[in-house]
Amino acid sequence: MPSPKLPPLVLSDEERETLLRWSRRPTTAQALALRSRIVLRCADGGSNSEVADEFGVKRHTVAKWRSRFVADGLEGLSDEPRAGAPRTVTDERVEAVIVKTLEQSPPDQDTHWSTRSMAAATGMSQSTVSRIWRAFGLKPHQVQTWKLSRDPQFVEKVRDVVGLYLAPPDNAIVLCVDEKSQMQAIDRTAPTLPIMPTTPARMTHDYVRHGTTSLFAALNLATGSVIAQHHRRHRHQEFLKFLKTIDAATPGDLELHLVCDNYATHKTPAIKNWLLQHPRFHVHFTPTSASWLNLVERWFAELTNRKLRRSAHRSVTELEADVEAWIGAWNDDPKPFVWTKTADQILDTLAAYCQRINDSGH
């Protein structure tokens, strides 16, 4: 059957301006922003099916908000009242909290807003401020750190390393190589208390150090297995011994592509001479300050979270034996890490960060 005739949808200049503001402002609720975009597109002549396909929603969703706007105007885009006690905090007061959180500096030279300072500034309770922040995913108490690489060959190195991950060469093994240096043998000053119902495991805050060791590791990109070796020192001599270990542990008829960082011990004359004598080794360096490109760092995170963070050792020898046992169990059932981002996606993301930095005015 033919679709019923769509009700005419004509916007006044004021309504169009309001809808555009709702659809573009970062602090607008996502549901309201989507409804505004739907109405704007319908007003431009889009059918329900066309608008539904464009915004990835159901056809009846477009029909609902089209008819609601035709009947009630801008007020029709708000959610209908629900059962329960009436709201005591208006949309305007909620918006004021969001705008103040995102656009204004906190008082008393604080670095960030707290529920207490926001409550004092807006006349609301701390619990109300907390609920608003949770609803909009705002976490002023948290901060994420990042660092931009200044490597003049950054783009070329990203394409080189990511190309290895996404399209490994034939008859070759790709190994992600790095060192986890200064692993400490730490013993707690009292025994760890086990987990109990309603109570997490408990351990003393203070500890005793019993020395350090460094773990050299090479993660096989295809299988997830790891070649590892402990050394008490972290020099080019130890790295050379590890290269010889890799040489002995891999089939001699395969090419070896090693992803490494720019640590000085990887580039000494002795290392370069050894690599020249072993032409099956091909070293690919990540950009400076871009260790996240080396997949072995992801494996080091597994080692830290699953073994090192909560363990206690009374000597370096005990630490090394414990880590070697954990690596042996890992290699019995290895889990490869799959790289998914292309070089272009990575570079586009970093370009967007750089643009935000430039636009910030700092």
Rank of each mutant, 00 (worst) to 15 (best):
M118F: 04
A185P: 01
E179V: 12
I346M: 13
A290E: 04
P334K: 06
R82T: 13
W22N: 06
N171T: 05
P191R: 09
T101S: 14
H282C: 07
P197C: 07
N331W: 10
G224K: 11
T90W: 02
P279A: 11
R134L: 07
A218H: 03
Q277N: 10
A301V: 04
D13S: 11
L303V: 04
R35L: 12
R233K: 08
P269R: 06
A218P: 02
R87C: 02
A217C: 11
P200G: 06
V259A: 00
T18H: 10
R298I: 13
L240H: 14
W339A: 10
F300C: 01
H257Y: 09
N171W: 01
L308N: 05
V174C: 12
T128P: 02
G252Y: 04
T90M: 05
E318C: 06
S214K: 00
E255M: 12
A351L: 06
A135R: 15
S291V: 02
P140V: 07
G224I: 08
W146M: 10
L148T: 11
G46T: 10
N171P: 01
H231P: 00
W326G: 05
D344E: 15
S289R: 12
R66I: 06
E15C: 03
R59C: 09
A222L: 11
L215P: 02
D332A: 14
A321T: 15
W299C: 01
D13A: 15
W330A: 07
P200V: 10
D151G: 03
W22K: 00
R134S: 07
S12G: 15
T288G: 06
N220V: 04
R24S: 11
V316G: 09
W146I: 07
L77P: 01
F337Y: 12
G163Q: 09
Y207K: 10
D322T: 11
M124P: 00
T192N: 10
V158A: 06
R21K: 08
G45P: 11
H205M: 01
K272S: 05
H141R: 10
D13R: 11
S114L: 03
L295F: 09
G361A: 01
G361F: 00
L11A: 10
H313K: 01
A167M: 08
Q153T: 02
G45F: 14
A264C: 09
T265C: 04
Q126G: 06
P152W: 08
F281L: 14
H257S: 09
M118Q: 06
E297C: 00
L19K: 09
N294M: 02
R235F: 07
K272R: 15
K241L: 15
M183T: 13
D44A: 15
C260H: 03
Q109Y: 10
Q109M: 08
V39H: 05
S127Y: 03
W299F: 15
R93P: 01
L19W: 13
K335N: 13
V338D: 04
E255T: 13
H231F: 15
S360V: 14
T28E: 09
N262G: 15
A185E: 12
M1W: 08
D187N: 00
